[in-house]
Write a protein that binds this DNA or RNA. Structure first.
Length: 650
RNA sequence: GGCGGGAUAGCUUAGUUGGUUAGAGCGUUCGGUUCAUACCCGGAAGGUCGUGAGUUCGACUCUCACUCCCGCUACCA
C-alpha cells in the first residue's frame, strides 16, 4: 500500500483499580479497529494504550488487599493487559505510568514547567476525596462529609502545593479551539467545555500532593508527588520518547502530535483543557483531535456487581467468541448517544449478521464450489446481466468505508461492509447456481458466478479485517487466498483464477440459541453475586478515636418537625422548623431527594443544635439533622418516637 | 437553578443547507427458493418524527413554551 504518512492513535490509559468491564473495553476495541484500518489504508500507524497506576486510591486499595502498591498495580495491570490481548488488540506499546522511562520524564517535565514559572509554590486547604483524588470546597460537600461526585467520605487536608498557571494559557486555548473546530469531537462536547470552564475563567490547577506517597516524586521538593492527571496525560508523549530536556527520540519527532486521542466523554475536560495547556507550556504542538466517545450501557439499569449484571469482555468472549464481541460493540455504538448492550441483543446481532449473512454466505459459496467444480474457482468470463451491479456494489464499498472511518463513524463503516455481503447473498438468488448446474452447457457461466462470489467475498473480507481480524483470516484461508491490499480493493477480478478452496469449510459463527445462552448467563450472574457478597466483608472506614469530653461538646437534641418546605433556590435542600421544648429553630438539610416535606411534619428528629449557624443559598441553618445513608444510597433521618422534644441525646 | 445535548416504527437507530410517498437493520407476517448454519431472496404491515403554539406557499428540519431523559456545573452543617 502506498504510504500516506504516520498515524498516531492513543486510548485513555486504564486506571488500575479494578477489572475493566465491557464499557471500558469498548474503547480499546474501537481504537484497535481504527488502528488496523489506517494501517491497511497505507498509514504508518503507532497505537498506544496502557494503565494509569498512581494515586492515593490505589495506595489505599493495596493496603486493604494487604499488598504493596506495586504488587497491587502489577496484578491489576496484568488483568487489563490480558483482556486487551484477549480482544486481539494490536497496540504497539502498552505503557504503564510506573514504567521507568515514563517516571523519569514526568519528573523532568515538572521541573521544566517549574523553572519557566508556569508552576509555582502555593498552599492548598480544603476537603479531599480519596476516591476522586480531588479537593472540594466546603460548600460542595454533601451530608457534612461526603464527596459531591462519588459520595465517599472526604477529610480535611492542608497542603503546601504546586500550582499550574492555567489562566495564562486560557486565551490561547480558546482561540485554538475556535480556529480548529475538528479538535474536540463530537462538537457538542466543545460547547460544554467552553461554557463551563473556559469562558467563566480557568482556575489555576493544583498539580502536586503531599498527603500520600504512591506517585512520581517531585525531585526538588521532598514529600511532593506529581498530580495524577499531569502524570497520566504525559504518557502520550513520554511513551514515544519525548524528552523535556530537548533530546526527544526520532520516533517522537515523527509521531507527535497525535492524530487521535480516543477517550470517554467523562474525561474530555482533562484532554481538551489541561492537556493542551500543558503542551503549550512545554512548547509542543497540540493533538489533532480528541474524540470523546459515548458509553455502552447495560439496558435499563446500572451495572453493579451485587446485582450480578456487570458484563465483562472475557465472559462475552467465552459465550460468543472474540470477533462477535468486537462486532457487537463496534456495530452497536452510536456516534454521539450512549449505546445499549444486553445479552439478548448480542445473541440477536451475532445470529443475524455474523452467522446468517456472513458465515452462511462463505459456507454456501465454498460448498457449491466443491460440489460443482471440485473446489476450483475459475473465471471463465461469461457475464450475466446482474454482474455489473454486483461488481459496482463490491468495488464501491471502499469509498464509503473510507469516508466513514475518516469521520470515526465506525458503526457506519461496518454497515457499509455488510452491504457487500448482503448483495452477494442476493446475487446467489439472482443467478441460481443450482439451476445452472443442471445443464452442462451453462458450466462456464456457473464457473463465472462462483468466481464472482469468491472475489466479492475476498474484497468484503479485506475491508472487514480491521474490525474482525480473526474471522477475516479464517475466510481468506478457506478461500485459499490473502487479504486484498487497499491499493487494489476497487478492482474486481484479482482472485487468482484456478485456485482451489478448502474442501471442508468450517462454520465461522454457529447460530446461538437465546435460551441456552441465557442459562449460561444466569450462571455468570450467580458467580458475580457470590463474589460481590464475599467482598462485602471489607472493613469499615474508621475515624480517629475521640474522648468522651470531645463527644460531650456536641449538643444533640430531639426536635419536633413543625414545618418543612422546599428551599426556594436549591433543588436538594429542605428548610425545617423544629421545636425543641421551649425553643424553635430553622434548619436546612440536603435530603430533598429522599423525603417529601409534607411527610415529615409532625415527626421527631435528632439535630446537632450547637453547630455554628450558616447561610445556605440565602437561608439560615441553625443546626444539622442527623441521618444515615447506606452503600445503596438509602437515606433515613434518625428517629425517636416517645421521648419529648427538647430532650438531649447522651 | 445555569449551560449543553437528546426525544424518530415493538427494539437499535439514519436523516445532509426546511421541499414531493421520513430511510435502514432486527423482530413480526406473507410469498419464493433449496447451494447453505430452519439459511438466503422478495413483498407487506408498523411512525400524527416528545407535547403545544408560531414563522413559512411548505417544518422531523427554524423560533418560543412545556414534559421527560442524559452530561457538565452550582446548592447539600
Amino acid at each position: 500500500m502506498s504510504n500516506k504518512g504516520k498515524y498516531y492513535i492513543t486510548t485513555a490509559i486504564a486506571y488500575t483499580s479494578g477489572k475493566p468491564h465491557i464499557g471500558n473495553t469498548y474503547e480499546i476495541i474501537m481504537a484497535d479497529a481504527i488502528a488496523r484500518y489506517k494501517k491497511a489504508d497505507g498509514y504508518d500507524v503507532y497505537f498506544m494504550t496502557g494503565t494509569d497506576e498512581h494515586g492515593q486510591k490505589i495506595e489505599e486499595r493495596a493496603r486493604q488487599a494487604g499488598m504493596t502498591p506495586k504488587q497491587f498495580v502489577d496484578e491489576k495491570a496484568g488483568d487489563v493487559k490480558r483482556i486487551w490481548d484477549l480482544m486481539n488488540t494490536s497496540y504497539d506499546r502498552f505503557i504503564r505510568t510506573t514504567d521507568a522511562d515514563h517516571e523519569a520524564q514526568v519528573k523532568k517535565i515538572f521541573k521544566k514547567l517549574y523553572k519557566q514559572g508556569d508552576i509555582y509554590l502555593g498552599a492548598y486547604e480544603g476537603l479531599y476525596c480519596t476516591e476522586c483524588e480531588a479537593f472540594y470546597a466546603k460548600s460542595q460537600i454533601v451530608d457534612g462529609d461526603k464527596c459531591p461526585v462519588c459520595g465517599h467520605t472526604v477529610h480535611e487536608e492542608k497542603e503546601e502545593a504546586y500550582f499550574f498557571r492555567m489562566s495564562k494559557y486560557a486565551p490561547r486555548l480558546i482561540e485554538y479551539i475556535n480556529e480548529h473546530p475538528e479538535f474536540i469531537q463530537p462538537v457538542s462536547r466543545k460547547n460544554e467545555m467552553m461554557n463551563n470552564f473556559l469562558l467563566p475563567g480557568l482556575q489555576d490547577l493544583c498539580v502536586s500532593r503531599t498527603s500520600f506517597t504512591w506517585g512520581i516524586p517531585v525531585d526538588f521538593a521532598p514529600g511532593h508527588i506529581v498530580y495524577v492527571w499531569l502524570d497520566a496525560l504525559s504518557n502520550y508523549i513520554t511513551g514515544i520518547g519525548y524528552d523535556a530536556e530537548g533530546n526527544s527520540s526520532d520516533r517522537y519527532k515523527k509521531l507527535w502530535p497525535a492524530d487521535l486521542h480516543l477517550i470517554g466523554k467523562d474525561i474530555v475536560r482533562f484532554h481538551t483543557i489541561y492537556w493542551p495547556i500543558f503542551l503549550m507550556a512545554l512548547g509542543e504542538p497540540l493533538p489533532k483531535q480528541v474524540f470523546g466517545h459515548p458509553w455502552l450501557l447495560q439496558g435499563g439499569e446500572k451495572m453493579s456487581k451485587s446485582k450480578g449484571n456487570v458484563i465483562y469482555a472475557d465472559d462475552m468472549a467465552d459465550l460468543f467468541g472474540v470477533d462477535a464481541v468486537r462486532y457487537f460493540v463496534l456495530h452497536e455504538m452510536p456516534y454521539e448517544n450512549d449505546g445499549v448492550i444486553t445479552w439478548e441483543l448480542v445473541v440477536e446481532r451475532t445470529n443475524s449478521d455474523l452467522a446468517n449473512i456472513l458465515g452462511n454466505l462463505v459456507k454456501r459459496t465454498i460448498s457449491m464450489t466443491n460440489k460443482y467444480f471440485d473446489g476450483v474457482v475459475a473465471n471463465k468470463g461469461v457475464k450475466g446481466e446482474v454482474d455489473d451491479d454486483l461488481i459496482k456494489v463490491v468495488t464501491s464499498a471502499y469509498g464509503k468505508v473510507e469516508k466513514d472511518m475518516e469521520e470515526i463513524r465506525v458503526a457506519d463503516a461496518l454497515t457499509h461492509i455488510f452491504e457487500v455481503f448482503r448483495r452477494l447473498n442476493k446475487y446467489i438468488d439472482e443467478t441460481e447456481p443450482w439451476v445452472l448446474a443442471k445443464d452442462p452447457a451453462n458450466s462456464d457461466r456457473l464457473a463465472t458466478v462462483m468466481y464472482n462470489l469468491t472475489e466479492g467475498i475476498t474484497i468484503g473480507t479485506s475491508l472487514l479485517a480491521a474490525f474482525l481480524p480473526e474471522t477475516a483470516d479464517k475466510i481468506v484461508k478457506q478461500l485459499n487466498t490473502e487479504l486484498r491490499s487497499f491499493d487494489d480493493i476497487e478492482k474486481f477480478g484479482l482472485y487468482p483464477s484456478g485456485n482451489k478452496v478448502t474442501a471442508n469449510p468450517e462454520i465461522l459463527f454457529a447460530r446461538l440459541d437465546e435460551k441456552e445462552i441465557m442459562k449460561k448467563v444466569e450462571v455468570i450472574r450467580e458467580k458475580q453475586k457470590a463474589a460481590a457478597n464475599a467482598e462485602v466483608v471489607k472493613p469499615l472506614d474508621h475515624k480517629p478515636e475521640v474522648t468522651i469530653d470531645e463527644f460531650g461538646k456536641m449538643e444533640i437534641r430531639v426536635g419536633k418537625i413543625i414545618d418543612c418546605q422546599k428551599h426556594p433556590k436549591a433543588d436538594k435542600l429542605l428548610v425545617f422548623k423544629l421545636k425543641f421544648g421551649p425553643e424553635e429553630r430553622q434548619i436546612v438539610s440536603g435530603i430533598a431527594k429522599w423525603y417529601k416535606p409534607e411527610d415529615l411534619i409532625g415527626k421527631k428528629a435528632l439535630a446537632i443544635v450547637n453547630l455554628k449557624p450558616v447561610t445556605l443559598r440565602g437561608v439560615e441553618s441553625q443546626g444539622m439533622l442527623l441521618s444515615a445513608e447506606d452503600d445503596k444510597g438509602n437515606l433515613e433521618l434518625v428517629n425517636v418516637f416517645n421521648v419529648e422534644d427538647g430532650a438531649e441525646v447522651r
